[in-house]
């Protein structure tokens, strides 16, 4: 219920949803760079698989040669060859 109201507000006021709903925003550049805002920490990190915690569940990224280009409380930037992106609900 709460989310629905927020959703409507953001739609009507044209505010960015990721801020109001506190959901992750994922931006993929080609198949070699991925930026995730509003993450909640790394669950698993290896060269082939990266799993990130977020408000909507775990985001699992599969690929090769992953490097965490940058990490801070707001943003994670990953580079590497991305093959697969999966959302795992709680």
């Amino acid at each position: 219920m709460k989310n629905k109201v927020k959703n409507k507000i953001s739609e009507s006021l044209e505010l960015p949803k990721e801020i109001i709903l506190n959901i992750p925003s994922i931006k993929i550049l080609g198949n070699d760079e991925l930026q995730i805002e509003n993450h909640k920490g790394i669950v698993e990190y290896s060269t082939d698989v990266v799993r990130l915690r977020s408000s909507i569940g775990i985001i699992k990224i599969e690929g090769e040669n992953f490097i965490i280009k940058e990490i801070n409380p707001e943003l994670v930037v990953l580079t590497g060859k991305i093959k697969n992106l999966e959302f795992i609900r709680f």
Binding site: T47, E70, N72, P73
Partner: peptide, 12 residues
Amino acid sequence: YINGIKLWDVKR
């Protein structure tokens, strides 16, 4: 990163 340390180019 929670403690405000900036890391980059993390490579396993």
